[in-house]
Simulated scan of single mutants.
Amino acid sequence: MLEVSLRHRFPGFALDAAFAAPTPGVTALFGPSGCGKSTVLAAVAGLLRPEAGRVALGGQVLLDTGRGIMLPPERRRCGVVFQDARLFPHLSVETNLRYGQRRAPPGTAGLPFAEVVDLLGIGHLLGRRPAALSGGEKQRVALGRALLSRPALLLMDEPLAALDAARKLELLPFLARLRDRLSIPMLYVTHALDEVDQLADTLVLMQQGRVLACDTLEALSARTDLSLLAGRRDAGVVLHCTVLAHAPERGLTRLGFPGGELLVPLDPAPPGMRLRVRVRARDVSVAMAAPPALSMQNVLPAIVEAVDPGAPHEALLRLRVGGAVLLSRVTLDAVRRLGLAPGQAVWAMVKSVAFSRGGEVPVAPPPPA
């Protein structure tokens, strides 16, 4: 378990944040710029001494101001990856990596050099200097250096924020591979929802220095009372799905999820692989009766659980579909015309083309409790 409770004041800003997250797994700190995410990470790493607080990892206390405990950064075994890679410019990629390896505490377990290089796909870069690397390559090397220090906790402070869209897409699969391969707990700071979708196991929502909510990504994405998520135009739920079969002749893949099945554009993932899929509220329509002929491939029986206010002239429906929840963004006019109310049986309809390939992300089984 990662336990964090912090209080600190800056001129014009106060941090008062607390959360607990299971380990191993990826805990994402998500919220707008300036909400205190990086301050929390700095305090966990030991780079900031808060006025009051406690940080513990797996029972080991890293910080407890009430008891006078303040382990220095080098004793916390935190591998830190910043927004800028911070590589030594005069050293080769291999020498940068070896620097991290030399910082590993004697006798600690971790991945060997060759496996880290292979995992991050940086073998062909070993002889280069940082100036000859792309932004995505620099971040992969920075990750490798942090991993080779054999950390007990991996801290990442918006590692993709400085990258363009192409480099970001290049690096995300490597981060997902790290999440699935390693048992190291990770604390990941971001304000990008697509990174949360692909990486997070636990989501911590922050706003103005406070924690609004902390729970699994699936649970928080299905809540309509959290404007930080539900108020976004790309709001929607994240579902854990399993690839059931492919129909190449139709260009479709069939996914199973707790509420039934979904047809999505043909995906290269093999049958049996688990995927995370975001179903956006704006892509879900409702009907009072099963439509006889429709271009939409996914028509699912559902029960309206809640009708909540959305943007002006809109409402957000919470729909129970078997063992899962979907959200649907509709107009207030539709609510009135259809008489939509909690407890009502409807049909939830989702276009197959609403599932872009970028939104379907391979995931490993969840870590044991």
Rank of each mutant, 00 (worst) to 15 (best):
R7V: 08
V117I: 12
L175K: 10
F257G: 06
A131H: 15
L126T: 02
P265V: 09
E74R: 15
A334N: 12
E218P: 00
A302P: 15
P89I: 00
V238F: 01
L319Q: 13
V80T: 09
P312M: 06
F113K: 12
V61L: 08
L155Q: 07
R274A: 03
L119N: 10
P258F: 13
V40E: 01
E261C: 10
G25E: 01
V299F: 00
L120M: 07
P271T: 04
A213N: 04
H246N: 08
T23P: 01
G136D: 08
G53S: 12
G127R: 08
A17M: 05
R77S: 06
V346K: 06
P362L: 14
H90C: 11
A146F: 01
G358R: 14
R329C: 09
L263Q: 12
V141D: 09
R128D: 12
L163Q: 10
V44P: 00
Q198E: 13
T190Y: 12
G36H: 05
P309H: 12
R280E: 14
A219L: 03
V353K: 06
R145N: 01
V363W: 05
G79D: 04
E249C: 02
W347M: 11
F113M: 14
G359F: 10
R276K: 13
L326K: 09
Q297W: 13
E249F: 00
V80P: 00
L203F: 01
K351L: 11
G110T: 14
M186S: 07
A245D: 13
R276D: 02
V116H: 11
P151M: 02
L300R: 05
E137G: 14
F30T: 01
V330E: 12
M206Y: 01
V237C: 10
D308N: 13
T224S: 15
M296H: 15
V350C: 11
V350H: 09
F174Q: 11
L91Q: 13
L332I: 04
A42S: 08
V204R: 03
K351G: 06
A293I: 09
N96R: 11
A311N: 05
K351T: 03
L48V: 09
L62T: 04
T108H: 10
K138R: 15
P151H: 04
D333Y: 12
T242G: 06
P271K: 00
P258R: 08
L319F: 08
L160F: 07
D234E: 14
P106E: 07
T65M: 00
H240Q: 09
Q83W: 13
F257I: 11
D234N: 13
G34W: 04
P112Y: 14
V211I: 05
P292A: 14
A18P: 00
D157L: 11
E3N: 14
V44W: 10
A104V: 03
V304M: 10
H313F: 03
V243T: 05
D197Y: 01
P367V: 05
G339H: 10
R7T: 12
Q83P: 00
L255Y: 04
V277D: 09
L15F: 06
P309C: 10
A192N: 15
V116G: 13
C241V: 04
L229N: 01
A290C: 15
R232C: 02
A287Q: 15
G53Y: 10
M70L: 15
L126P: 04
M186F: 07
F82P: 02
A245G: 09
